[in-house]
Design a protein around this nucleic acid. Sequence first.
DNA 1: ATCGCACTTC
Length: 481
Amino acid sequence: MLPHSRAALVRAIAACAGCREAQALHSLAWKLGLASDVVLATALLTRYAKRGLLSAAQRLFDEMPRRDVVACNAMLAALGAAGRAADARALFDRMADRTPASWNAMVTCCCRAGDLGSARRVFDASLRAGSSSVVSWNAMIDGYCKAGRMDAARDLFDRMGSTLPDVVTWNTMMAGYLHGGEPAAAIAMFHRLMHIHQQQQQEEEHRPRPTTVTMATLVSACTQVGDFALGRQIHLQIRQQGTRVDAVLSNALMDMYFKCGSVDRALDVFRTMPCHPNLFCWNTVIAGLGMNGRGEDAVAAFRDMVEGARNRRQHEVKPDAVTFVALLSACSHSGLVAAGRKLFADMLPVHGVPPQTKHYGCVVDLLCRAGCVDEAARLVRAMPGRPNAKVLGSLLLLDARGPERQEGGVRLSEWAARRISEMDLGDGAAYGLSNVYASLQRWDRVEEHRRGVRAAVRHGKGTRRKQPGRACYDLASSCTN
DNA sequence: ATCGCACTTC
C-alpha cells in the first residue's frame, strides 16, 4: 500500500457525506489491509458518529489495537454528541494524556447535558492545566448563554480581557442576548465589536472581524427590536463591503423585510440569493407572503418549492411541519378555504408530513373565519389529542360572528370556553385567551379565568412561560377584525 | 486524523 493512496483514502473518508460512502470506504480499507490503521479508523469513527451511528463508532474504537489521544478525542466527542455524558466522563478520566481538544469536548458535553457545574469545574481545571484555548472559553460562555445565564456568560466574557476574544466569542455573546430576549444588548455588542475593530492598537490579523454569522445575528436583532432603519443600513453595508451572503444571512434579511412589510425587497433578496434556497428560506418566504396578505403567492411559492425540486431534480427541499403551519396560516389569512383544505388533506399522503395539533389549529381557524362551523366542529372532534388554545380560541371567536350552533344546540363557543377553563393555565396561549374574553366583553369569564391563572401560578404551574405575548397578539389581532 | 464555539423559518 502506497502512502499517498492511504492519505487519499483518509481524505475521502473525511470528506464523504453519507454513511453509505463511509461504509464503502470502510470495506475498502478492510480489503487493503488497513483495518487496524488508527488514523483511518479515527476518520471513519467520526463519520459514523456524525451520522448518528454511535454503536458503529464505538465498535471501531473498541477494536482499535492501539488508541492515541486523537482517537480518544474523537470518541469523546461522539459520546458527547449522543448525550452519553457519563460514558464520556469515564473515558475522559481514563485518558492518560489530554490535549486542549479533550478538555473542550468535555466542557461541551457537560453543557449539553445541562450540567453547568461540572462544565465549569472542567473548564477551571483546563485553565489550571494550562490546556485551555479561546475555544474553551467560547464553549463555556455558550453553555451559559444556552442556559439563559447571560450574567455568568458576561462575567466570563469580561474576564477574557481585550485580546483573547475572537469573532466566535462575539457571535456567541450576541446570539445569547438575542435568544435571551435582549436584542438591544446584542446590537450594543456589535457596536462594541466595531469600535474595537477600528482601533489600530491590535495587529491586523488579531482584530476580530465580523463574519456572515455576525451579520445574520445582527439583522435578526434588528428585526426583533423593530429597528428596520438600522437593518436596512446593515443590508446596504453588507452589499457595499461585499460581505459573503449565504442562505442563513439571506434568510435573516428576508425575514426582516417581510416583517416590516417590504415584500418586494424580501423577494429581491430571495431571487438574488447566491446559493440554492434551503428549507428555512422557503419557510420564511411562505410565512412572509402569508403574513403580508399574499396567500395566493404563498401557495405558489410552495408549489415552486415542491415541484421545482421534482422538475429540476436538484437540491430537493421537502416541506416540514413548519412549512405547513406557514402555508395553512397564509390560506387562513387570505381566506383560501378550498386551497387550505386540499393542502391539509395532502399533508401526509403526498408530502409525508403528519398533521399535528398546530396544523389542525390553522385549519380550524381557516374554517371558522370562513363560517364553515360544522366542518370546524367535526375537525375538532376528529383531531388526535386535546385541542390546544389556538383551536379553542378560533372557536371562541365564533361568539363575535353571531349565534352559530352545533347539532346538539350547544353553542360551539360555549363548549370551547368550557374546555379552556379546564386547560393548563400555565400555557401562555391559555393566559392570552383571557384577553380574548376581555375583547368579547365576557367579563364573567375573564374573572373566572384569571382566578384560575393566579391559582395555577401559586401552585407553581407554568413558571417558565415562553413569550405569552405572541399568543396574545395572534388571538387579539383576530378579534379586532 | 480527532476535537471544540457562532447563524436563519412557525
